[in-house]
Amino acid sequence: MIVKNSKTLLSVEGLRASINGTEILKGIDLTVKSGEIHAIMGLNGSGKSTLAKVLAGHSAYEITGGTVRFEDKDLLELAPEDRARAGLFLAFQYPIEIPGVANTQFLRLAYNTIQAQRGKDELDPLEFDDFVREKMKLLDMNPDFLDRSVNEGFSGGEKKRNEILQMALLEPKLSILDEMDSGLDIDALKTVANGVNQIANKDNATILVTHYQRLLDYVVPDFVHIIQSGSIVMTGGKELALELETRGYDWVTANKQSIAGAVA
């Protein structure tokens, strides 16, 4: 939701990033205020997932220009764990499997790490068990997933639910959901979207990184940005996603060229 006079959570200006000497992000500008839901749409290779990983602090990318502020902090100066502790959350496109660590153990460790950072009480295993089971209902998750190893043998949909469960537990200020809809059937998509909608409120913000419009039927964005070759080439409201769905990414390319031509 767009909230009047809400505060800016994320401010990205001219962000450039490379991997192995190849520039992927070529000057990204993006402002996200609390309460808002943004969608970043683009084809494979457009740089949308890179943007998500760069914001979360993945060490494989080299920042070659620009600034990113997260509330009052210089985000680029923070280690990944400090970004998480400051309230940034990335739901992975491909969540990592950790055989040998029970999901509940992992969830509690992550939860207590963040709680300690916020000066709040940590939960012991029993207290945490009650707490997490309540949150799991939000995502229609079977409690059996608590005792299984983290993401091991989970289906695509189960892994995504487990990501959103972490989001629900950690209560981030800004959540970036990377390809939340990939590999989900329509029922799983609805459940996951419902979870995201319930977590979203006027004090936090969400960035949905996606290729397809489908997800946006269920999590309705306030802003849609289209990213191509490492820069945001169009920004609009939720109608932009529908237009893109009808006309395809080629339309964006043609349109961008005509705009560029007119300027020249």
Binding site: A56, G57, H58, S59, A60, A79, P80, E81, R83, A84, R85, F89, L90, F92, P95, I96, I98, P99, G100, V101, F106, L109, A110, T113, I114, Q117, S149, Q166, L170
Partner: peptide, 30 residues
């Protein structure tokens, strides 16, 4: 230790040392 696995845990607030320790533990715990 896999860098993506370490990053995953760091992105959940764990320090790099804690992430490495957890992954090593997990490797043996299996």
């Amino acid at each position: 230790l896999d860098k993506e696995e370490i990053f995953y845990l760091e992105s959940r607030g764990l320090s790099e040392t804690a992430a490495r320790s957890l992954l090593t533990y997990a490797f043996g715990a299996e």
